[in-house]
Design a protein around this nucleic acid. Structure first.
Length: 222
DNA sequence: CCATTAATTGGCA
DNA sequence: TGCCAATTAATGG
């Protein structure tokens, strides 16, 4: 079982340490659109994404949704309770696509962090990055209009998973659906649709079919 | 092919 | 911009 190793994210660990980690958790396969846990449930498991796509979100009684984040290969979630004493999940999460998760009990996770310093380091760094990203999103949400939020999201995705295709053009191969983009930046789906129309018209972006889009890094506003 | 779900559009607050 | 309603497009059986 070297699936954790294959993800490359725990690369700092020695084989022995990796074994320590692997024998304390199990691999679990999920179909698409399955709830993994819901907000306010008791936080007793952590999940490391070996493969697939997961969405974390808040939802109110009216069904209105705000997407906290999306996790893919190499991500660990939730992001609370590893060092502090939070006892419930801060958001709900579900699979967007069929996924393989490495599942580990909370207590076991805490022991591992204690036992393997480099793992603690990795997690600290990981959480810091997630935190930074979230702060930046909140800042945009409060300070920037929708177009600028969308553009900064596209830029981040292009940086993270973009594929260079030609002069200035980058393909984002796994873009979430427009309604998810809307729930992510906190605007109505119609707004996202109209913003994309503007970007297409200005030749800043080109649609490439479902879940794919070309963006021109240089021409994108802001 | 049909049944759903997603995206687009126009109108109006 | 948001929300609603009416279409139209895209998907997945």
């Amino acid at each position: 079982m070297s699936m954790l190793q294959a993800t490359g994210w725990l690369g700092n660990l020695t084989n022995e340490e990796l074994n320590q980690v692997e024998k304390r958790g199990i691999l679990k396969r999920y179909c698409a659109k399955k709830i993994i846990f819901e907000k306010d449930e008791v936080l007793n498991r952590y999940y490391y994404v070996v493969d697939g796509l997961i969405q974390a979100y808040h939802q109110n009684r009216d069904g209105r949704k705000w997407i906290v984040g999306q996790f893919s290969q190499g991500d660990l979630f939730p992001h609370t309770g590893l060092v502090g004493d939070e006892t419930i999940y801060p958001a709900s999460s579900k699979t967007l696509a069929s996924s393989i998760l490495f599942v580990i009990d909370r207590q076991a996770a805490r022991e591992l962090i204690h036992r393997i310093p480099s793992l603690g380091q990795w997690i600290t760094q990981f959480l810091a990055n997630k935190n930074q990203e979230l702060i930046s999103r909140f800042s945009d949400l409060v300070l920037e209009p929708a177009l600028s939020q969308l553009v900064s999201l596209l830029k981040r995705l292009a940086r993270q998973s973009g594929i260079q295709v030609s002069d200035g053009w980058v393909l984002i191969p796994n873009l979430m659906a427009e309604q998810d983009l809307a729930a992510y930046i906190g605007v109505a789906p119609e707004t996202v649709s109209r913003l994309f129309r503007r970007l297409y018209r200005r030749n800043c972006a080109k649609s490439a079919g479902r879940g794919k889009i070309y963006v021109n890094f240089d021409k994108l506003p802001i």
